[in-house]
């Protein structure tokens, strides 16, 4: 049974690239364009990993992680932050909210897959 990963990013191109890479590796992918959109799409289906950008309109990544952690169906779901710069304060804030994994942008597909597979193998 394929593992499902949600990618939350306001950049359509990033969602696309990440989506292609993950699907190519054998994951199912759910896309969301910001934190609010993502919360609306968390409807109880099984998700094995959530990857989220930090700076997004409507709801930023850290708020989203905090909210998602409150949902019973996702409170134990691993969360990965995409930090634009190696901004350590953002990373720490993300960790505090519950996103223990992180990936520094810009990244290439192999780096993403490598980081993802530490948490969820396809």
């Amino acid at each position: 049974m394929a593992k499902t990963i949600m990618i939350v990013d306001d950049s359509a191109s990033i969602r696309q690239v990440v989506g292609i890479a993950l699907k190519g590796a054998g994951y199912d992918v759910i896309e969301a364009c910001d934190g609010r959109d993502a919360l609306n799409k968390l409807t109880g289906q099984k998700i094995n990993l959530i990857i989220t950008d930090v700076n997004m309109p409507n709801m930023d990544g850290i708020t989203f992680v905090t909210e998602a952690k409150k949902l019973p169906a996702y409170k134990f779901t691993p969360m990965m932050m995409l930090t634009t710069e190696a901004a350590d304060d953002k990373k720490q804030a993300g960790k505090a909210a519950g996103a223990k994994a992180w990936l520094t942008k810009p990244f290439q597909a192999p780096t993403l897959l490598d980081a993802v597979s530490k948490l969820v193998l396809p």
């Binding site: 134990f76 519950g98 223990k100 530490k118 948490l119 969820v120 193998l121």
Partner: peptide
């Protein structure tokens, strides 16, 4: 576990 870390994942990796 609460932080979404499953030791099995790391060991598999």
């Amino acid at each position: 576990f609460r932080n979404g870390m499953d030791p099995l994942s790391f060991i598999r990796y």
